[in-house]
């Protein structure tokens, strides 16, 4: 039984999220502002916190700052502000994920699940040689296995090759041409559509919302990169 704190000043949202989380079997603690959330975090052993940003008394960002002073619990920010700058601000305040309203409830639940799994299993898996880690993603180059939040993800050989090449060049933007030449090991004379199709499939396997990827990001008109966390 994991404890999840959901904090929002809007009752209806609070209720609906509560229902979804309970359906997934989580123990839900509710709060309506930042102060309540901090109090609840002190009183309970939490595994994940969902915080709305726009709240009375203490807003989500400041709550995140306060919580991060002592705890390392995964925090998912919930906000109606959907701008890139808002997301960046939220993440830099110490949040682990950022979901914009209006959200798909199932996506939110998936993110909660992902955060809890990583939080709970973190450190239980030994860091061996040849394992590349970014966020909840672990690529074991020895065994040629990819794990997402501890669960193995099935990949085809080409998909694995692309992922391995991207992970080896973590944070760098690689063009489809570069990827093609490295993975297929033959010269490419034109921009390859094959690569983009494969990457799309990989994203569908490793991302919660493939349209807004967390790990395998598209840099439009330049190439792809594996985000380093």
């Amino acid at each position: 039984m994991y404890n999840v704190l959901i904090c929002d000043d809007d009752e209806a949202i609070l209720e609906s999220v509560d229902i979804y989380l309970k359906l997934e079997g989580y123990n839900v603690i509710k709060a309506q502002d930042g102060m309540q959330a901090i109090k609840a975090a002190q009183e309970n052993e939490l595994h994940c916190i969902i915080l709305d940003i726009m709240m009375p008394r203490l807003d989500g960002l400041n709550t995140t700052l306060k919580l991060r002073e002592k705890q390392n619990i995964p925090i998912i920010l919930l906000s109606a502000k959907g701008e890139d700058t808002d997301k960046i601000t939220g993440l830099s305040f110490g949040a682990d994920d950022y979901v914009t309203k209006p959200f798909n409830p199932l996506e939110l639940i998936a993110r909660v699940k992902s955060q809890i799994r990583r939080y709970v299993s973190l450190g239980s898996i030994g860091r061996s040689e040849g394992v590349i880690v970014t966020g909840g993603l672990e690529l074991d180059t020895g065994a040629k296995i990819l794990r997402l939040d501890g669960d193995e993800v099935k990949l085809t050989a080409t998909e694995y090759g692309i992922l391995e090449y991207l992970c080896q060049n973590m944070g760098r933007v690689l063009s489809t041409q570069q990827i093609y030449e490295a993975v297929w090991n033959e010269p490419s004379y034109t921009t390859e559509k094959t690569v983009t199709v494969h990457i799309r499939r990989i994203r569908e396997k490793i991302e919660i919302n493939p349209k807004e990827p967390k790990y395998l990001k598209v840099v439009w008109g330049i190439g792809y990169k594996m985000e380093k966390y």
Binding site: D10, I13, S16, V17, K101, P102, F103, P105
Partner: peptide
């Protein structure tokens, strides 16, 4: 905000 609730 209300839309979120509606969707949910």
């Amino acid at each position: 905000t209300p839309l979120t609730s509606i969707i949910s």
